[in-house]
Amino acid sequence: MAVLAALGLLLPLTSCSTGGSGTRDEGPARSGPVGSTTPTADPSASPSPKSVDAVRLVKEDPKVSQAVKRDLKPCVADEYPVDVSYGNLTGASSSDVVVNVLTCGDAVGIGSYVYRPTGGAYENVFTDEQPPVYAEIDRGDLVLSKQLYEEGSSQSDPSGEEVITYRWSSDRFAEQDRTRNNYSKTVSGASAAPDDD
């Protein structure tokens, strides 16, 4: 009987330990002012990139072909088919700008450009207008993706992709790496039906 009584006393005590869901004794509530949660700025961090008018940049660029300029029209209202990225590619004092011009219907890249800030303006330092093309910034490198197609295949059915990596060197982009990926030719999710005997 004494053992049962002791167990009966221990059970309520263990259910209120700090690992359970009972009450815990954390000490008195804090009454002083709560410290500021505003993060302090890191003086070595790069400033936020300044947004540019990418459409105007492309249309006023003499290095951009007339075909791309002619195709660069709003898809809906005043929404143009351009993707814009900001980052450090050329070691300039402020962010470089990567602009991809796409088609409205199927978003195929028809031109990729890199603009480097120089003296309050932007200079075109890279151009690729061989569609389909798309440029991105990857850890300080310029990465260009090009869909590959077999003869007679549709725009929605690429046979592979070529990925070219460029790095800024001696005031220009130099190719560093080229990778080709071939896509599987199997029909996704389709299987042959069994023959009926």
Rank of each mutant, 00 (worst) to 15 (best):
D141S: 11
Y115Q: 09
V163G: 02
Y115E: 07
G140V: 09
S169N: 15
S145N: 11
T127Q: 04
Y149V: 09
V97R: 01
G109H: 00
Y134N: 04
R139P: 12
A135W: 03
I137V: 14
V114G: 00
V99Q: 03
G120T: 07
A107E: 10
E151Q: 10
E151M: 11
E151I: 10
Y149Q: 07
V114Q: 01
T103H: 04
Q130L: 12
V98M: 01
E129M: 06
P132L: 14
V101M: 07
D128Y: 04
R172L: 13
N100V: 02
Y134P: 03
S154G: 15
R172T: 09
G119Q: 09
S145T: 08
Q130C: 14
Y122A: 10
D138Y: 08
Q155K: 08
L142V: 07
Q147G: 10
Y166I: 05
R139C: 13
P158K: 03
A174L: 13
D171C: 11
P158S: 03
E161A: 08
D138I: 12
Q130H: 12
Y134F: 14
P132Q: 14
R116C: 03
D106R: 07
R172D: 10
E123N: 08
E161S: 10
S159A: 04
P117I: 10
D171G: 11
R172C: 14
T118E: 13
R116N: 04
V97K: 00
P158C: 09
E129W: 03
S159T: 00
R167A: 13
G109C: 02
P132M: 14
G119C: 13
L142R: 02
A107R: 06
E136Q: 12
V163W: 05
L102H: 03
T103C: 08
Y149H: 09
G160N: 01
Y115G: 06
A174H: 15
N100C: 04
G109T: 00
V114I: 06
N100K: 05
G105H: 03
R167V: 06
I137E: 09
P117T: 12
P117F: 09
L144Q: 06
Q155P: 11
L144C: 12
Y113Q: 10
D171W: 08
V114Y: 01
V108S: 06
L148M: 12
E129I: 06
Q130T: 14
K146S: 11
W168T: 00
A174G: 11
N124R: 15
Q147C: 13
E129V: 05
S153C: 14
V98W: 01
I110Y: 04
F126C: 01
D128C: 07
E136L: 10
V125P: 07
C104N: 01
A174K: 10
Q130M: 15
E136P: 06
S156T: 13
V99C: 07
D106Q: 11
S159Y: 02
S154H: 14
D171L: 14
F173T: 08
G109P: 02
Y166M: 09
E136A: 09
R139L: 15
P131E: 12
E123T: 05
C104G: 00
E136D: 15
D96C: 05
F173K: 09
V99T: 10
R116H: 07
L144N: 03
G111R: 00
D106P: 07
K146V: 14
I164E: 05
I110E: 03
G105N: 03
I164R: 05
G111T: 01
S145G: 12
V133K: 01
V101H: 04
G160F: 02
P158A: 05
